[in-house]
Design a protein around this nucleic acid. Structure first.
Length: 272
DNA sequence: CAGAATACCTGCGGGC
DNA sequence: TGCCCGCAGGTATTCT
């Protein structure tokens, strides 16, 4: 489930419960995520205080004075704060138990997620080092994108999903942003106009902001046991709506595969 | 180097 | 009911 807005929502949800809290114990039930969880992570984290929790792209960073835990939720991961002990289910791979008795529980059926540790500046970690600007920052600007699109033949959709170009735009929001910007998803990047860059930057920022706002409302009770959220679905204009009517012009929405992933678009509204 | 394909893993829904 | 297939919100790695 995690795209950037959800990771941001998770961050805001767990932050007040775990920041400045000391880890009492860590339980690992399954080390085999995308990369193995460091075998000594329980020792490393014991008695460490979480100074801050941050997000970079879709990574969550739990900073301590000596190092940082790097967490990624992959395609199916989730994090919840438990205030009562609830017996772990099949895919509950990690529990971090704090001295205030709250438990941060990491769940991930597909195990595409990651739970790593670095002693160094996490921004220099190989996974984070090459990330492009945060889409909601001023660094992600029209001028920046305009410069990047020059002389590349890649489709614009894959381009904005490339984390080296801009961090954190996944399949759902790439579809949505391209619809809002009125751009044909398979358009080669080098054919994108300056005006389209402007529309696209604006669309990406607006869609992500809006989704974060929604996440904040629909995900508000995930601290409790039953946090199965259904967030954004109501607001999506194209994703998951193949064969349905375009909300702008009622044309039947079409599907195409770009980079092995489904792409939904309106051939009338996104002809540019 | 850019771009395309592949790989990791489990669950779910649909068709038979 | 059960089996097989395709598909799922990510992204590093391998290939051409």
């Amino acid at each position: 489930m995690p795209e950037l807005p959800e990771v941001e929502t998770v961050l805001r949800g767990i932050q007040p419960h775990i920041e400045q809290q000391t880890i009492k114990k860590v339980v690992i039930r399954h080390y085999g995520l995308r990369w193995p969880i460091p075998h000594n992570i329980t020792v490393i984290l014991k008695n460490k205080k979480i100074e801050t929790v941050e997000r970079r792209a879709k990574y969550l960073l739990l900073r301590t004075i000596t190092g940082t835990a790097i967490i990624h939720l992959g395609m199916s991961g989730s994090l919840r704060v438990l205030t009562d002990v609830i017996s772990p289910q099949k895919h509950d791979h990690v529990d971090i138990i704090f001295s205030n008795n709250k438990i941060l529980r990491f769940t991930d059926p597909r195990r595409f997620g990651a739970f790593l540790w670095t002693n160094d500046d996490p921004m220099l970690h190989p996974l984070l080092k090459h990330l492009g600007p945060e889409p909601l920052s001023n660094d992600f600007s029209v001028q920046y994108l305009w410069k990047q699109v020059q002389n590349r033949s890649l489709s614009i959709k894959l381009f904005i999903m490339d984390s080296k170009i801009v961090a954190g735009v996944g399949n759902i929001y790439a579809n949505e942003a391209l619809f809002q910007a009125g751009i044909y998803p398979a358009m080669p990047t080098k054919l994108i106009t300056l005006q389209q860059c402007q529309q696209l930057v604006r669309a990406i920022k607006q869609i992500l902001r809006q989704a974060i706002r929604q996440g904040g409302t629909t995900l508000k009770d995930f601290v409790d046991s039953e946090g199965r959220p259904g967030y954004f679905t109501q607001r999506l204009k194209v994703y998951g709506r193949a064969e349905e009517a375009c909300m702008h012009c009622t044309t039947r929405l079409q599907t195409m595969i770009i980079g092995q992933r489904s792409t939904v678009y309106c051939r009338r509204c996104q002809s540019g």
